[in-house]
């Protein structure tokens, strides 16, 4: 039997609560596994704590999910949002917190999400991120991964290599937002750590959709 093209394969998939939890668990696991690497990326252009902050947030979210009944997608994303908001501690707290609050809103009253609804969820997250961080494309922030990824997701099913390429593309950018902006030209040549943790989120999504 010939392999289905990725777009068709992914587009046939629906996200239910189980799949969404798998997605989140995979992301939390990756944030923990890459804790040192994320902080290392943050060293030259930030305060070197992105890995520690995100791992702390991921573990808080895992604990919160284990402690309470999660009946639906809305509760899942809201619980994660509140855990990240209360535990991350850096700029990523309010940014990811706003993204997951938007996910919660976009998934309210849905038991499952089809491809178009997953796209709508991602777009809601992207809009919330941009309005919270007041960042635009090209400022060397996670917006530089969110915007092109959601465009790709709308257009074709992106691969994990596509995500890697988007994260890598933050390297030559000069930071004009966030702590790294104080460094000006010295921020050039480093991957943006928030874009990396966002890359993990998107790659985990593609993994569960393709499973």
């Amino acid at each position: 039997m010939p392999l289905m093209p990725p777009l068709k394969r992914l587009r046939g998939k629906r996200m239910d609560l189980g799949l969404a939890r798998q997605w989140m668990d995979a992301w939390f696991e990756q944030l923990n596994a890459q804790k040192s690497y994320l902080s290392e990326l943050d060293n030259p252009i930030g305060d070197g704590d992105h890995g520690i902050n995100m791992a702390r947030g991921a573990n808080a979210a895992k604990d919160a999910l284990a402690d309470k009944e999660i009946p639906d997608l809305n509760t899942l994303f809201k619980t994660i949002a509140m855990a990240l908001l209360s535990k991350v501690g850096g700029a990523s707290g309010p940014l990811y917190g706003s993204i997951f609050l938007a996910f919660a809103k976009a998934s309210a009253n849905h038991d499952t999400l089809d491809y178009a609804q997953i796209l709508a969820l991602l777009n809601a997250g992207k809009d919330a991120l941009m309005s919270r961080g007041k960042a635009e494309v090209g400022e060397k922030t996670m917006v530089d991964v969110w915007v092109p990824f959601t465009e790709q997701f709308a257009d074709h099913a992106p691969s994990k290599d596509d995500v890697d390429a988007l994260v890598e593309a933050t390297k030559p950018l000069k930071a004009t937002k966030g702590r790294a902006a104080y460094l000006g030209d010295r921020s050039i040549g480093h991957i943006d750590p928030g874009s990396m943790s966002t890359g993990y989120l998107f790659k985990a999504l593609l993994d569960v959709l393709d499973s």
């Binding site: 902050n53 209360s86 535990k87």
Partner: peptide, 11 residues
Amino acid sequence: LETGEIGTTYD
């Protein structure tokens, strides 16, 4: 943070 580490949180 509540742990004494550097940072700020919504809560």
